[in-house]
Design a protein around this nucleic acid. Structure first.
Length: 470
RNA sequence: GUCCCGUUCGUCUAGCCAGGUCUAGGACACUGGGUUUUCAUCCCAGCAACAGGGGUUCGAAUCCCCUACGGGACGCCA
């Protein structure tokens, strides 16, 4: 079987859209699945927005997702250059050939592709003017995703602007021919361009590739209607990197948007994606991008990481929020994170979840205090907990100390232990939810548990004497 | 408006091509229960869909037609 060559051909706009990223991913997966070649070609014919920064955004995004290219910018290859801005001669000679064979003509300084068929003039309500139309033979192709598709092009179309610049349809086809692309995997928005492209392949005497039009990504209905656009919230790949999502999760999630492997598996690491990816699994209907499952996958991949790696990822985040400094004890940090990790899907939620482990001055949540007060005076309960600590076994750990306090206080007061635990939780962390209470106490250690209980009672005392409210 | 493509739980989807095994499966979300005498993890359970109509057939989510709805294209943008 002939070598499979696919390409991803983005235009550097300064943004890397999640829809583009998915198209890149599908191409990359197909190339790797077939052990073919993945080409990255930069469609930078629009000089205005073609900046080095814009290119960098693209390359960074590709690398972040783990999509390496076999031919393209920075790596070169036998079919270069891979920037359209440097391929002018290819386009010029193609235009000349079409002109010479009468398959194109000049008008108003631009060059148009000449369709074959009966011509007639008609008022076009969409364009609001009379135009020349052509009854051309419909182009038919077997789309790898959608099956047989048939469409006719009904107007001559420009292939070179009056400025001498070539137009997208021309450069796209000329480059795909020159780069020996065998499979064009692109968004469904190109479906209606395909007939034009097939006309060009025929006119240029080249065999067309296999086309696979993948479904579009639609915006979250909460955001609006239609396909996702660059301005939509959550539409930029960079957002997920900035929010510390794992690339593995984003990749897995993107792959599942419009494609599925046979069977019930959904958590698919790279190797599994590559192995099971094929056109047969591609959906025809458009997919809606919603963050829910992405979060879930992120949590999954996060929990699979070695705790050292997790800690390495979390440290700069916590440092950025001023929660930990350079001096923080690695072992302590790791023990805290091991407690928090099972509960969180997103790294970005970590600072707000674990900050109390590192701060003396953690806030006492008013809602938590209010709930404690429904079952009595939390300050009294705290005092009773402290009272239960008179006979402490030597060398007891934090969890044991807290357990002793709770049991003794419960036994002496006649209240249930269930009354004391929430109080202890708020005393140690400032809130009513969090990691396992015993585990918090163990990590904090006995001295800190006692100190926090004392401080809690003192803070409530101050608040009480200061008057109502907090 | 014209042309093209699509439509299975709220969302992502399996099943459709090779009609019966589908009282339509999984996952996320949600709800309830259990565990942890706390909790956003974990475990169990529940909720919830074949767009509508016609046809073919003994039998249709699966094949055909129509309608509705959704999306895309229609640029000297890519």
């Amino acid at each position: 079987m002939a070598e499979v060559r696919v390409r991803f051909a983005p235009s550097p706009t300064g943004f890397f859209h999640v829809g583009s990223a998915r198209t890149a991913l599908f191409n990359w997966l197909y190339a790797r699945h077939c052990e073919g070649t993945f080409v990255l070609r930069i469609e930078d014919t629009d000089a205005r927005r073609n900046t080095p920064e814009a290119l960098q955004v693209l390359l960074d995004g590709m690398r972040w997702l783990g999509l390496d290219w076999d031919e393209g910018p920075e790596v070169g290859g036998p079919h270069g250059p891979y920037f359209q801005s440097e391929r002018g001669e290819h386009y010029r000679s193609a235009v000349e050939a079409l002109l010479a064979s009468g398959q194109a003509y000049e008008r108003d300084g631009a060059v148009y592709f000449r369709l074959r068929g009966e011509r007639y003039r008609e008022h076009d309500p969409y364009l609001g003017e009379e135009v020349e139309k052509v009854r051309s033979e419909p182009q038919v192709w077997e789309d790898a995703v959608r099956g047989r598709v048939e469409q006719a092009v009904d107007r001559d179309f420009p292939i070179q602007r009056a400025s001498g610049e070539p137009v997208f349809h021309l450069v796209n086809v000329v480059d795909d021919i020159a780069m020996r692309i065998t499979h064009v995997i692109r968004g469904e928005d190109h479906l209606t361009n395909t007939a034009r492209h097939l006309e060009l392949y025929r006119a240029l005497g080249a065999e067309p590739p296999v086309f696979a039009h993948i479904p579009l990504l639609l915006k979250d209905p909460a955001v609006g209607k239609g396909k996702m656009s660059k301005r939509d919230k959550g539409a930029l790949l960079a957002e997920y990197r900035e929010r510390h999502f794992l690339p593995a999760a984003v990749r897995n999630f993107l792959a599942l948007l419009g494609w599925s492997p046979k069977g019930d598996r959904e958590v698919l690491p790279l190797d599994d994606l590559v192995e099971s990816f094929d056109f047969g699994g591609i959906q025809k209907g458009a997919a809606r991008f919603e963050e829910g499952k992405l979060r879930h996958l992120n949590g999954h991949y996060l929990r699979e990481l070695p705790i050292e790696t997790y800690t390495w990822l979390a440290r700069p985040l916590l440092a950025g929020e001023g929660i930990v400094g350079e001096e923080v004890d690695e072992d302590y940090l790791q023990r805290v994170l091991a407690l928090c990790r099972p509960k969180l899907d997103l790294l970005e939620d970590l600072p707000g979840y674990c900050d109390f482990f590192f701060r003396r001055e953690y806030p006492l949540e008013e809602a938590a205090l209010a709930r404690l007060r429904k079952k009595g005076d939390p300050r009294e309960r705290a005092e009773e907990l402290l009272g239960g600590l008179r006979h402490l076994p030597e060398g007891a750990g934090g969890a044991e100390v807290l357990g002793e306090a709770v049991e003794t206080a419960a036994a002496e007061s006649g209240h249930g232990e269930g009354v004391y635990r929430p109080v202890a939780r708020v005393a140690l962390s400032g809130r009513l939810s969090g990691p396992d209470l015993g585990a918090i106490a163990e990590v904090l250690g006995p001295a800190e548990v006692i100190a926090r209980l004392e401080r809690f009672a003192a803070r409530l005392e101050e608040a009480g004497s200061a008057g109502a409210g907090s």
